[in-house]
């Protein structure tokens, strides 16, 4: 079976783009967001998904099962996959992922399977669950400038139709705390990994210098670094999960990425912490939190 490659990143951090690009390496199979490791068993994970109004289960996992186990991403196969999950409610979550990893290895010969579920970065026990399930997993930590992430997160929150205005306001007020909390969770987790098991990437570097970053990732994993392999990584739109899925499992990746999955190189305009702290949003953080956020951002290469 292929080895697990786990991408750790909070939401709105280029994670769909970066993970799909890496997953396009000829020796890697890139999954969409499987979301099942949030809980110990399939049944518990399904319950979590239903609380989030995804009633059939995690769309990314349903699409993956349909693609790899049931013969293609159709609405009928998604239903088959949903029934399969329902029937295996007591199964351990990692066993379902091992099943699709087995199939991906069989079908494509992949040496690594790449999974990314941003929600695990909120829950250290979920990351510990992943470590227990795959002790030799490799980890990639993708970062984004905190001010740009907040802006993107705020846009996302405003577009959520299922939230009331009051709920949106609460989330908007708390959106800046997501960055330090998730980064701290990831850094704490990664500081306990074995030597060489962890690579940190700035998402902005992927946009501005994709070929070099992708080559470094392939080199780190001991995979092909020839031009053809790197070129494949620059075509995320060719992933079977880069397009809308069947109507009953349409996403499984960031909707904006699915809407426009092609890689467009460029140097993103970065926000500035100084400017942010001069705004009403920034002053909502007290002085120690401002110092914490600033130093943590500096450590990760952001000003």
């Amino acid at each position: 079976m292929a080895r697990m490659l786990m991408l750790l990143s909070p939401p709105r951090s280029f994670s769909s783009l970066v993970s799909t690009m890496i997953g396009q390496h000829p020796e890697i199979y890139g999954f969409p967001e499987l979301h099942i490791m949030m809980r110990d068993t399939v049944g518990e994970a399904l319950k979590w998904e239903r609380n989030c109004e995804r009633f059939l289960g995690p769309p990314g996992l349903l699409r993956t099962l349909a693609e790899l186990v049931y013969g293609g991403q159709t609405a009928e196969n998604v239903l088959e996959a949903a029934n399969f999950l329902e029937d295996n409610a007591n199964t351990r979550s990692e066993d379902i992922i091992n099943l699709v990893m087995d199939r991906a290895t069989e079908v494509t010969g992949a040496k690594y399977c790449l999974e990314k579920s941003p929600s695990v970065t909120f829950l250290p026990p979920a990351m510990e669950r992943i470590r227990r399930a795959w002790p030799d997993a490799m980890y990639i930590h993708v970062t984004r400038h905190p001010v740009n992430l907040k802006k993107s997160m705020d846009e996302y929150i405003r577009e959520l139709t299922r939230l009331s205005d009051v709920e949106k306001d609460v989330r908007l007020r708390n959106s800046m705390t997501m960055w330090p909390v998730t980064q701290r969770n990831i850094l704490d987790f990664c500081s306990t990994l074995a030597p060489g098991q962890y690579l940190r990437i700035r998402g902005e570097d992927v946009l501005s210098d994709a070929s070099n970053v992708m080559r470094q990732v392939a080199e780190w994993l001991g995979l092909r670094t020839d031009d053809a392999a790197i070129a494949a990584m620059l075509r995320p739109e060719e992933s079977p999960y880069a397009v809308l899925g069947p109507v009953n499992a349409a996403f499984g990746n960031d909707p904006k990425f699915i809407d426009s999955p092609k890689f467009r190189p460029g140097k993103p305009r970065l926000g500035r912490l100084d400017d942010f702290f001069a705004t009403e949003d920034g002053t909502r953080l007290d002085a120690p939190r401002q110092a914490y956020l600033r130093q943590l951002a500096n450590c990760l290469g952001y000003q």
Binding site: C190, S191, G196, L199, I201, D205, V213, Q216
Partner: peptide, 23 residues
């Protein structure tokens, strides 16, 4: 530690496997 770097600064010369070479 391994992190985005200028190409020559990604991989440490004292590699993983020694305590000093780890992140």
């Amino acid at each position: 530690e391994l992190r985005t770097s200028p190409a020559r600064l990604l991989v440490p010369r004292i590699g993983p496997g020694s305590l000093l070479g780890q992140a």
